[in-house]
Every structure is written in C-alpha cells, then in structure tokens.
C-alpha cells in the first residue's frame, strides 16, 4: 500500500516538535526516517500508525486518510512490548482473529521463519532481548499487514543480533513485500534496508533531504556507492569533523 505524508506537523504543549514534513512511500518500498534524536521521527511514525491524531497536515494510506489505528498495519516498537502473561505462541497470536486452530497454525509458521519454533511455550521473561524482539516481529507480521512500521526496532540490541535481525527483516520483506517505514538513527541500518532515506534535522525537526538508495538488495556493506552515500548523509547532518569545526567557528 502506498503511504503519503503531506505537510505533517506536531506540537506538544505549544512547542513545535516537527513541522512541514512531506514524503511518499510506493507500495513495497522501504522508507527510512533518519535523524538525530529529538527531531520528531517517532512522532511522525505514531501519526502514520494512527496512535496519535492531534497532528497538522494529512496522512493517507492507499489514498484513505488516517484517523485512528487500523488492523491493517503492523507495528514493531523499540521494545518488544510482549504481554508477559502470554507464551511466545500466544503473544504472536495476539493480533489474530478467527478460530484458535487456524491462529496457531499461522503463528507456528511465522515462528519457524524467525527461528523460534522451539520456544513456543516460553514466557517473555525466559527470552533474551533478541528473541523477544523476534517474537515482536513475528507478532507484527503474522497478520500479513500490507504496511509495516518500525520504530527504532533494533536500537536496544547488541551489534550482532542487530545485523542478524536486519537480514531477517530483509528476508521477510522479500517474502511478504510490505511497504515499510523504519525510524532509525543508525545510518548503516538505513543504508542496508531502505530504498529511500528521508533525512530530518533540527529542533523542531524539518525535512532536510530525501535520498534514493539505488543498489539492489541484499547489499554488501563494502559497496563504494553506499560509502559515498554515508559520507554525504554524515555531512548533511553536520556529523563530520569539518562540519563540526565549522559549527563551532
């Protein structure tokens, strides 16, 4: 499904957090919202998810304006947010409807894909951080959403688990091809996953750039084109040494 964000703005208690953000996602595209902390990336995502409706501007999903959460979206938060009283299997079934047997079948299938088929009866307290986040990913994907929203999904994980799960998300994307919006502050992550990177900057956050990432996925980390892009993004976020010197001067 396509997503259109037009002139999005949001203020909290009179303080503007983001303003005038517009971008689009074509069906099956992976969009990265990249920016330093506090520039309102997650605020935009909450608007798209329908969890927040007090924003300015319009958000359309397949042409229809968003005015509340819809079951057609899958959301993956920064924390796994599993129900501690449910087993892995029941947590994955959380968003499903219909007969129990069917739910279980679907959940088991997706748990195999994320590699947790041996942990169906475990409770969240018995899982490692990576396993818990994988359960959360399975929960979001089991409803086969046409749009998947990810809010810094891997930022709380260690570097190895992070790489593993990024690969897994790409695999899942190849399989189900949902439209995805990923909020992240990790440039490498954005360059690995995204077709297009929307760069936000400043406080209040404003749209700084909208970069297309052309190399085909899966991408090699050593791709010179990606290195160039990374340099460019760092520069535009004033993150390189020269830029920082300039700012100080």
């Amino acid at each position: 499904m396509s997503i259109q964000v037009e002139r999005f703005g949001r203020s909290f208690d009179g303080v503007t957090a983001v303003e005038d953000i517009s971008f689009q996602a074509e069906p099956g595209e992976i969009i990265g919202l990249l920016g330093t902390s506090g520039c309102g990336k997650s605020t935009i995502l909450r608007g798209v998810a329908g969890l927040d409706t007090d924003y300015e501007g319009t958000i359309r999903i397949s042409g229809k304006e968003v005015n509340g959460p819809s079951g057609e979206l899958g959301i993956i938060f920064q924390e796994p947010r599993l129900m501690p009283w449910l087993t892995v299997l029941d947590n994955v079934c959380f968003g499903l409807e219909g007969p129990k047997e069917e739910q279980k079948e679907k959940a088991l299938e997706i748990l195999k894909v994320v590699g947790l088929e041996d942990f169906t009866g475990h409770y969240p307290k018995q899982l490692s951080g990576g396993m818990a986040q994988r359960t959360a990913i399975a929960r979001a994907l089991v409803t086969e959403p046409s749009t998947l929203l990810l809010d810094e999904p891997f930022s709380a994980l260690d570097a190895f688990t992070k790489l593993q799960l990024q690969d897994m998300v790409l695999e899942l994307w190849e399989r189900y091809s949902p439209t995805m919006i990923i909020v992240t502050h990790d440039i490498d992550e954005a360059l690995t996953l995204c077709d297009r990177i929307v760069i936000l900057k400043g406080q209040p956050g404003e749209l700084h750039d909208n970069v297309k990432v052309t190399p085909a996925k899966p991408r090699r980390k050593s791709d010179p084109k990606l290195a160039e892009l990374k340099e460019y993004i760092l520069e535009s976020l004033d993150m390189t040494r020269n830029a920082q010197k300039e700012v100080r001067a």
Binding site: A49, P69, G71, F77, M83, F94, G95
Partner: peptide, 11 residues
C-alpha cells in the same frame, strides 16, 4: 501504557 498502546495498535 506501552502494552495498552499495543492493544490500541490492533484497534
């Protein structure tokens, strides 16, 4: 509140 939000996300 975060768990309630999960519920809301599933409407």
């Amino acid at each position: 509140r975060k768990l309630i939000e999960v519920g809301k996300a599933y409407s």
